[in-house]
Design a protein around this nucleic acid. Structure first.
Length: 153
DNA sequence: GCCAACGTTGGC
DNA sequence: GCCAACGTTGGC
């Protein structure tokens, strides 16, 4: 079963345009157990991802991506030169996981304000109070509504 | 820059 | 196991 997700990235760090330029990327640096568990257990090949730009004005969904490799150890966690280094994670006993994603389609910016203003999207985790998870589940209906708002068939 | 929300850490 | 302190996220 294909599922739908929303993943946050700060455009200063890694914008959707960079994903298009790269062709695919590994989603490293997630250091939250809930998000890790979803990447380890729930994100499956072919699942769709709303690529969300956080910490920018305005925050918005920028495009669609797709999972192209399921959960595997995040090697930046045992790289002492990485800013994501975690001394408790080793190749033998990895603590953190990541997935690979590839771009599917750019969309017209769908801002957080637009999402909040749409009653059909009021149950999205993104608009819930204090929601900070960098990987979030999205229902098929919510996914399709955002695609529609972004001008994607 | 502010600050609310939330996760993690560590003393007890 | 509790909880205060602290750090981070991220919208505003």
């Amino acid at each position: 079963m294909v599922r739908y997700w929303l993943m946050k990235s700060e455009p200063d760090v890694y914008p959707f345009s960079q994903l298009i330029a790269d062709g695919k990327t590994h989603w490293d640096g997630v250091r939250n157990y809930q998000a890790r568990n979803m990447m380890r257990d729930d994100l499956k090949l072919g699942d769709f991802v709303l690529f969300y730009h956080s910490n920018t004005k305005p925050p918005h969904v920028a495009g669609i991506a797709k999972v192209c490799r399921e959960g595997y150890p995040d090697h930046t966690s045992w790289d002492p030169n990485s800013k994501y280094f975690d001394e408790k994670s080793t190749p033998e006993n990895p603590r953190w996981m990541m997935v690979d994603i590839k771009p599917v389609k750019e969309m017209n910016m769908v801002s957080l304000a637009d999402i909040k203003a749409n009653p059909a999207l009021e149950d999205m985790p993104l608009v819930q109070r204090g929601q900070r998870l960098s990987v979030q589940p999205v229902s098929q209906d919510q996914y399709e509504e955002i695609c529609r708002m972004g001008g994607v068939q």
